[in-house]
Design a protein around this nucleic acid. Structure first.
Lengths: 250, 250
DNA sequence: TAGTGGTCTAGACCACGGT
DNA sequence: CCGTGGTCTAGACCACTAG
């Protein structure tokens, strides 16, 4: 049913096993990802691709246009197709630096490991009808960039939808990655409310800042591919050193 | 230097006064905006457009692809090009209540009417290379919900891309609506940074709050269908009564 | 089966950038 | 000047949708 082109998988069409422009697309993407072409380098010109792959310019252009749409290159008239800096996070809120400084610089600690409990008054979004009926799972984490404590994150969601969650280790420390890989649930959208507040004593203690420091309070409601699984989050961020970033592309 | 196609302005190329696909694009966009085609309707097929405009399918397809990229239609194999619901909050931040309470409850006042000036140090996003070369237009507004002053909005963008802007009245008081209807430019994406700050004296005065009240500072960079038109915005919000809302859908 | 959009060919002329 | 990407023509075959 699915076929592999390079390292990528495509749904197999009946008589056209491979789309030519996808072949070129996958080839170029791999070259970029493997570092043959670095940021600022120019890819082979359209005419060169025509010869290499025995295709017409229309097809070569289609591949390059797709590559541009995905953010890998910028086409420049009279010069060529230059490898661009890849777009990072898409829509979800992320601490600036989380994506760039992947790995050592960033880590997360549990303030409260997952447990079954009642819905909290702290949740800002109205809790949906179906959700009220059951109890929920809750966990709370503290996120660091380097030694700086930048965010308290609290999460609630209906307990019935994720069986075995209390016994599951987070995959690579990520809740969303766990949802995706263990439960095959994807986040489809979110709704958020933003408030600037002054840190109360408890928040100030955890974030190690002075009481009364301005903090960013983000209230999130995530919609997922399991329509019964709404995730409610409340984030409290110290934006002094690291602002919260958010990217959106049509 | 600039020419008008329909109600929209384009930079004039030397020998090709009008790009054919843009002619089609502008025509279809106007038809949609004027309500000839409503959400769910199907546009003329590619072949019909070929006949109407005396063009080949390649050119008709180019126009439709652009229209799809800007979010106006969805192309469906075997059926046609269906007018889609234009995604509204495009990652745009909106004061909660602005959309619900459209009309009487909400209004906007200019603190500074549009003028030509230099780029400001206040802009948080790095100003892109091409943008630095020219001067910019700037305007500043204060937004109310009822009698409450909830947001100061400052906007900058390259002056050369919007000819006649200083003499243009805002359509329905909206900058983005003006961009869309007068210049046929659509917002394709945004990148934002969020910070919680304490109001300084000037901000406090304008928003009529106490100095030192926590305010939400949103730094935005909008990407549009005119790749030379980047819009830089700095918003200062009093979220005490009205939090800032943001919706995202994949 | 007729009509739609998706892919592709083999050409052409143009504007732009750098030599 | 040559090579680059941008636009455009006039075809072709294909897969999908619906009557």
């Amino acid at each position: 049913m699915y076929i592999q082109v390079g390292r990528a998988w495509f749904y197999e069409r009946k008589s056209m096993v491979t789309l030519k422009y996808q072949e070129v697309l996958v080839y170029l993407k791999e070259q970029i990802q493997r570092g043959k072409y670095n940021i600022g380098d120019y890819l082979p010109s359209e005419n060169e691709l025509c010869v290499q792959f025995s295709i017409t310019r229309t097809t070569a252009r289609k591949a390059l246009e797709e590559l541009q749409k995905e953010g890998f290159i910028v086409k420049i008239r009279g010069k060529g197709s230059r490898v661009a800096e890849r777009r990072k996070s898409l829509g979800l809120l992320s601490v600036k630096g989380f994506s760039e400084a992947v790995g050592e610089n960033v880590h997360t600690e549990f303030l409260q490991r997952p447990l079954r409990t009642k819905w909290s008054e702290e949740i800002q979004h109205p809790i949906r009808e179906g959700d009220k009926d059951t109890e929920c799972f809750f966990f709370e984490r503290l996120r660091f960039v380097g030694d700086s404590r930048v965010m308290i994150g609290k999460n609630w969601f209906p307990a019935d939808e994720l069986p075995g969650f209390l016994d599951t280790e987070f995959i690579e420390g990520s809740f969303f990655k766990t949802l995706s890989k263990r439960y095959l649930i994807e986040v489809l959208g979110s709704s958020s409310e933003l408030r600037a507040e002054l840190a109360d004593e408890k928040e100030a203690n955890i974030l190690q800042i002075e009481k009364g420091t301005p903090i960013l309070h983000v209230s999130l409601l995530f919609r997922t591919s399991n329509e019964k699984l709404n995730i409610y989050s409340e984030l409290y961020c110290n934006t002094d050193e690291f602002p919260i970033g958010n990217h959106y592309n049509l």
